[in-house]
């Protein structure tokens, strides 16, 4: 087995991969660029780490616990509806 160094010229650079990662995750890279992106990942463990970390960041943000809403706020909104409806019914009968 020969241990020839890979020819990296013409490949995407790591810096380019980092800039394209969101477009990649959004599946918006043109087919050829998508292929070049994955060809880079195939030979570059640090970029695989980076791309995975971005994906993990997104998953973590999706898992943030939401604050609870106050029941009081909902009551106000229902009153608001009932007032609106009353005003509407009144103007209908005018």
């Amino acid at each position: 087995m020969t241990n020839e160094p890979l020819d990296l010229t013409g490949m995407l650079t790591c810096q380019e991969v980092v800039e394209l990662v969101t477009t990649y995750h959004e599946h918006l890279l043109p087919p050829e660029e998508h292929q070049r992106f994955e060809a880079h990942l195939a030979i570059c463990p640090p970029c695989r780490t980076y791309v995975a970390q971005i994906a993990q960041t997104v998953r973590m943000m999706g898992a943030l616990t939401a604050e609870q809403e106050s029941a009081e706020g909902t009551l106000v909104l229902l009153d608001l509806f009932r007032d609106w409806k009353r005003g509407r019914t009144l103007s209908d009968t005018d």
């Binding site: 010229t9 650079t13 810096q15 380019e16 780490t49 999706g62 898992a63």
Partner: peptide
């Protein structure tokens, strides 16, 4: 032999975690 624009200081893996899901 590594061209410009490749990592000089590569990112380090994060500790193993339970899946956030």
């Amino acid at each position: 032999g590594i061209p410009a624009g490749w990592w000089a200081i590569p990112p380090q893996p994060w500790p193993e975690m339970q899946s956030p899901e």
